[in-house]
Design a protein around this nucleic acid. Structure first.
Lengths: 221, 221
DNA sequence: GATACCAACTTGGGATACCAAGCCGGTATT
DNA sequence: AATACCGGCTTGGTATCCCAAGTTGGTATC
């Protein structure tokens, strides 16, 4: 694997894993020494992460994207548009066998599953559902949206009850898609996304002082 | 303006203007000498254009993205999802003053307007309409989709009648949005996009031999 | 003590040198 | 004549060097 891909992947993981906090400054020299690569692949990786929205420019320098509550609302609208379109396509397919794989993925999580795994599966559910549509652009859009939401979802304070409700909603969506009911799938998915957004924004809004205390830049809604 | 931005902009214009044909190979050294920049900004520009989908990797090298008829169909689905979402948002706004600016933009084209300008305005209509929604993600999605469609639309053989019909549809969409009728706006926009896709794919499909004769790589649907 | 100014350093932007892998053409062998 | 082999050339990947602009810390002056 090339150095550029190495740096890109590791840096993305550090950002998404909050090892580098939202709002933190990045210098090419620091990354260079941190990953043992020279500046050329480092700069290439930064350019790619910039298009993913994980980092941005701060004048001449680089900054890890802050947690932006207003952006979360816009992403929810965007997600709804593309995910609903994807699920409607999927519900109209003859071969919806892929749904069972997604259901199995959900069921692989139980009480002993680490939180990190729940987090990943919760995002992969939406990504894999979009993949079933067969539309590369809808898939990419969903993947991008989930990437941008990843840190916020990780920071969200989620109680067991909310987690269980989300999982039930996921299963309900799958059931509607499996039945080929596009309207019901769309309705359930829209409601799920709206609820998810509300819990997320409320949780982070309530926590924003705590987040700032941890050194995380939080942009108000 | 930085060298990277210069190279990126000029290379994008050459690709979209078909001065470099779809499917053509690109070498970093050629670009370097062509624009008088060194490889560092050239590589940065290539990385950005790659994320725009205008170029892709061909093994170790770079290739201008071919005209892909299957992709055009997928983009139409994607466009419909995001543009309809955007126009619904806009129709629900209190302040829809921006619509008049778009109408004026359409009206700035007449029989003497060069074809290039019609082409640009035809894309800007959709982009600016999406901008009115205020949602950055929907706007970016529409802009990306139009960029990817740009070359295909340029190659499309369009008769006066089809062009006039498209303009009438644009005005009808604006009227519905101005009236705040979200459902009607969405219906008209969906029909417009579907019709646009059909004309585009049919035209290119019929022309694909001619396109290949011009040295353009065309991927079948 | 406050401020204006200057030097050293930091940092991203760009240029260039080097490398490894792959491609191509030529040559020698059968 | 066909083919296997080899050497040079092209090309992207990487490392490194230089530069200009901006920042910082200290110092001298008022």
């Amino acid at each position: 694997m090339s150095q550029m891909q190495n740096v890109e992947r590791q840096l993305r993981e550090m950002i998404l894993g909050l090892e580098i906090g939202p709002g933190e400054r990045l210098t090419e020299r620091w990354i260079e020494s941190r990953f043992g690569a020279s500046r050329t692949p480092v700069r290439a990786a930064l350019l790619r992460l910039e298009t993913e929205g994980l980092i941005g420019r701060d004048g001449r320098g680089w900054t890890v994207a802050p947690i932006n509550l207003a952006e979360l609302g816009q992403i929810a609208v965007y997600r709804e548009a593309v995910e609903v379109a994807a699920v409607r396509l999927t519900a109209a397919l003859e071969d919806r066998g892929g749904i069972d794989v997604i259901a199995a993925m959900l069921d692989s999580c139980d009480a002993e599953t680490p939180r990190e795994e729940w987090h990943r599966v919760g995002m992969d559910f939406h990504i894999e559902l979009a993949r079933l549509s067969g539309n590369e652009f809808l898939l990419r859009a969903v993947r991008d949206a989930m990437t941008r939401l990843s840190r916020a979802r990780w920071l969200e304070v989620r109680d067991e009850k909310a987690l269980g409700r989300a999982w039930a909603e996921h299963h309900a969506i799958l059931a509607a898609v499996r039945a080929g009911d596009a309207d019901e799938s769309a309705r359930l998915l829209s409601a799920h996304i709206a609820g998810s957004r509300d819990r997320l924004v409320n949780s982070l809004h309530d926590d924003r002082r705590g987040l700032r205390a941890r050194g995380f830049a939080v942009v108000a809604a």
